Amino acid sequence: MSVRIILLRHGESLGNVDELAYCRIPDHALPLTARGEEQARAEGSRLRDLLRDRPVAAYISPYVRAMRTFELLGVPVVRRVQEPRLREQDWGNLQDPVGQQVQKQKRHEFGHFFYRLEHGESGADVDDRVASFLTELEARIRHDPTHPDTTLVVSHGLTMRLLCRRMFSWSIELFESLSNPPHCDHRVLTLEHGRWRLDRPFAQWRDSPDATTQT
């Protein structure tokens, strides 16, 4: 049996083009831009070619930008689940612009995995919840005969990288060396002969300090 998990980042959102939007709109409520909606429609065409009408289960971050991305894909699914464990890293509630920049600088200096944002989460916290999601998903695929072999996960850039970190047991140093995928870009994880494979590596902004790689 061949099992596939397709990880997809949402389209461009208002927060990606206007950082001050986080000061007036909760992160979970930020909408897609017009460009983000175009990206989602275009990705839908690519996904339909990839899926070839095979049954699909979709697990979607409940954030507005992820849910809207899924809707615009136009991909038919047999199971659709809002999954809070796939949400973006929590930066707290409405953000102060000065405090936001301070937090980003501290996070860069301290490390994206372990630094816990004030009133929010660390990357390690996100890692814990995506691990819980993966464990439950693998059990469903293995034991529920009605669950499709193909799963679509619509989520966020950091969440996608951490899902792969857990799946492939990547080091923290390697995770922190990877860049988020572009908006509405996907990665395909395939289970064949008991081993998970990633179709394409993530871009890296530096070599991993521990010399580990994605292969």
Rank of each mutant, 00 (worst) to 15 (best):
S61I: 05
T33I: 11
M67V: 14
A57R: 02
L20K: 13
F70K: 04
A58S: 13
G74A: 05
E37S: 11
A34L: 05
G36C: 09
P76E: 04
S61L: 08
Y59D: 02
P97S: 07
H28P: 01
V78H: 14
R65Q: 07
R68A: 13
R87E: 12
P55A: 03
V75N: 09
L94Q: 10
G44P: 05
A42R: 14
R48Q: 12
P26N: 08
R65W: 05
Q89W: 12
W91E: 02
Y59E: 01
L72P: 10
R65D: 08
L30M: 11
L50T: 09
R46K: 13
H28R: 12
V56K: 03
A57W: 03
V56H: 03
R35N: 07
N93P: 10
A29Q: 14
A42L: 15
L14S: 04
R79H: 13
R24C: 10
V64T: 15
G36Q: 09
R79K: 12
E37R: 15
R54Y: 04
A29H: 14
E38N: 12
E83G: 08
D49K: 15
E88V: 06
F70Y: 12
L47N: 03
V81H: 05
L73M: 03
T69C: 00
D27V: 02
A29K: 15
R41S: 08
P31T: 02
L51N: 06
A29M: 15
A57I: 03
H28N: 10
R54H: 10
R65A: 09
E37G: 09
L20V: 05
L47Q: 05
Q39G: 11
G92M: 02
P76H: 05
A42K: 14
I60V: 10
N93L: 13
P62E: 04
R80Y: 14
